[in-house]
Write a protein that binds this DNA or RNA. Sequence first.
DNA 1: AGCACCGTTGCACCCGGGTGCAAAGAGGGC
DNA 2: GCCCTCTTTGCACCCGGGTGCAACGGTGCT
Lengths: 340, 340
Amino acid sequence: MGLPMRGADLARKATATDVALAAGVSKWTVNRAFKKDAPIAEESRLRVLAAADRLGYRPNLLARSLTTKSTQQVAVLVDDFANPHKLPVLHLLTAALQRERLVAVLVNIDEQNGPVDAILDADQRQVDAVVLLGTSFRDETLRQPALNAARAPLYVLARESTLDAVKAVSCDAAASMEAVGLHLVARGYRRPGFMSGPRTLSTVLGRSRHFAAFWADRGIEAMLDIAVGTYDRRAAGEAMGRYLAATPASDRVDVLVCENDALAIGAMDAARFGCGLDVPGDLAFVGYDGTDLAAAPAYDLTTYEQPMAAMVDRLVDMIVGRLDPTTVSLEGRLVVRGST
Amino acid sequence: MGLPMRGADLARKATATDVALAAGVSKWTVNRAFKKDAPIAEESRLRVLAAADRLGYRPNLLARSLTTKSTQQVAVLVDDFANPHKLPVLHLLTAALQRERLVAVLVNIDEQNGPVDAILDADQRQVDAVVLLGTSFRDETLRQPALNAARAPLYVLARESTLDAVKAVSCDAAASMEAVGLHLVARGYRRPGFMSGPRTLSTVLGRSRHFAAFWADRGIEAMLDIAVGTYDRRAAGEAMGRYLAATPASDRVDVLVCENDALAIGAMDAARFGCGLDVPGDLAFVGYDGTDLAAAPAYDLTTYEQPMAAMVDRLVDMIVGRLDPTTVSLEGRLVVRGST
DNA sequence: AGCACCGTTGCACCCGGGTGCAAAGAGGGC
DNA sequence: GCCCTCTTTGCACCCGGGTGCAACGGTGCT
């Protein structure tokens, strides 16, 4: 009697019906025992819980989701694993989601698997929301008619959105570029330049444009913009090397503001180790994101820190419905270090 | 007639029954139309597919998983987001899983949410497998009786396992520490030290022990081991600072092998910028992992590169059943740079 | 013509749990 | 003792799609 039952137990997970049998009640009573504020006698609840414990029963969340129409899953789409900043963002995001008993489904967007397919796929999995942590796709991509069938609300994090249907939680580009600009003016820099990543990205254009506007207001027009095309450290170094090789010292910028820390670090390495320049003496650098590495003494990079924790909190507030979905942009703060 | 239908369409996703109605067949035929090699007339298949397309129908993967007992989801448990190396690992892992049409559920393990709870939770979600990317928990934790109820196979990646039920895919600690040791001997280093992360971790003890054993074989016993307790760059720097402050130059090690690149980078920064030491002149450093940052000219760190792509491929082979689950350990390669 | 056979289709019932409602039981007031 | 009410429980049926089997029709064969 012992062995066959064990065998069965091992092969198959206990279901509510099994527990009901063991506790001498109906399966619906088992269901109630696991539901907060359900009308059930305390005594039966305890009996059910004891039986459940004995059988190692835990409700099948899949089956539950089928009727409740809520999977407690949020798809997180990432298209730029080369940027180290994504890791702390994922950390904050998963932590914030888990506080609400939500879980992140991490989806890699690349050539094989574009954003539209990924969204449709996630929607088929009935996720409660889709968060785009992407950088290199275009807004227009999300306007594709195929996406109309998808029911999961779409959010973009740490970049702006021009689409009504896609709410964005980002860091205020105008305010941040003004903070950077004011700092540079105060330090006496007069020949600013910008280094940008993927060209397709509204955020890039945003930061770059706001930075240029800041200087245009002060009579400095036609700013240099080194377009790297990706957020890759190496690529930034190569682009920087090309710029330095092509430009005599007297014509160079005196400070380079980079669209993020990864670019700044690559560019800084090229300037220091490739061309023997002094930072910030010959050339100053500013990053964006406030990554951990920017704080390392080997870089000591002045950077604009995005208020990522607050941004993630807002985002999760919207996902769980505590906040009406809207596009919000928060202000971060400039962290001044030795690179300027 | 247009509006009400639209309203209904928007409120509710089309189901197989809806498509069946539209195509003039039964819902089972709809089902067949979406199944490869199902017995269905080509003509009906096309008719169904057209109707599905018209209605924006895509099968509900949740409902499917309920009967097929396969969710195509793999839980990935991470407990150390401070280590930048986790990002490329996640990249490789999600990419490899997606190639098999599997998706990663990313779960954050911390104080609020321990490994056991996370595994049970993932199991309730009926994931097909659980991959532990953890470092700071103990093997014994996984022996807890509560886990017996869980049916999902457990794997650990990039660390060893002493449990039969938990298969590990890791990088050969003995071989890697021998490669490092031989390199150091060839370069003439005679006073080696080791810097380790979390004490609870079998991998740490493994690498540290193998490295010590290598030198013991050559008559150098009682090796220094600086235990940092975490894999944090800053903590490593502080531990290094304390060591350098407490040890006169003549008594110091001449090379420090660190349990991973994050520690090496922190320790190296403390040595160079905190104490003005020359690397590798006064003190040499070796890392482990082969992170991108180790290649940056600002660090130029000699490091042992784990064959992560191959490891991930093996792991996924086991998950999809192409390979029988066993514990495997692969060999990586030493990347020699300027820090030794 | 009669038969078997195959491709094709429909159906009953399953997966595991959730909902709304009705019935059963307990308790109180008259 | 009766009735009414409230708590507790059971039940039918649902979520959306998957399985095994039976029945259907047409073909090719004898």
